[in-house]
């Protein structure tokens, strides 16, 4: 039996493993894409940060916030939202590439803000009231570490 297994591995081992991996690739690529397209991924809804991914029509009660990023800060740097309120953030950079990384209890929102293009972020404010800090995630110069803002859920 031992030799039988060894010779089977020699003959088919590699192809079998490749097929197993292909199946895994199929499963995870489809699963991920399905979540992006259907908008069920907190991290990454509807193919954002392109405008084409913004849900239409916007859910009732959506708070739309326009934020300008610059070296080194955001204006406005506070978003006040109600628990569970849908929020659409439209990001614009005045100078260089910046980032927007917001860790929410249900996932992480993380996009880059490219000058000359608007980036869109859509998320639901957490159900638990509190302050949630977003930070710049793309290196943008010496003040990079000090670029942040707060989502106040009250």
């Amino acid at each position: 039996m031992g030799m039988g297994a060894a010779s089977w591995i020699k003959k088919h081992g590699e192809l079998t493993w490749f097929l197993v991996l292909l199946v895994l690739v199929g499963i995870f690529a489809t699963w991920s894409l399905e979540e992006v397209v259907s908008g069920t991924s907190t991290n990454y809804r509807f193919g954002l940060p392109l405008a084409s991914g913004v849900p239409r029509p916007l859910p009732n009660g959506t708070l739309v916030v326009n934020i300008t990023a610059y070296q080194w800060g955001y204006t406005p740097d506070v978003i006040v939202a109600k628990p569970g309120q849908p929020v659409l953030v439209v990001l614009h950079s005045r100078d260089v590439v910046h980032g927007f990384l917001l860790k929410l209890p249900s996932g992480t929102v993380n996009v880059d803000i490219v000058p000359g293009t608007l980036s869109y972020v859509f998320f639901y404010a957490p159900n638990t009231p509190g302050n949630y800090t977003w930070r710049c995630s793309e290196y943008c110069g010496i003040g990079h570490s000090f670029m942040n803002g707060t989502v106040e859920v009250i």
Binding site: T40, T42, P55, R56, G107
Partner: peptide, 10 residues
């Protein structure tokens, strides 16, 4: 863990 139902289907 990071999947949440959409507000409605789009």
């Amino acid at each position: 863990a990071t999947s949440s139902p959409p507000f409605r289907a789009y």
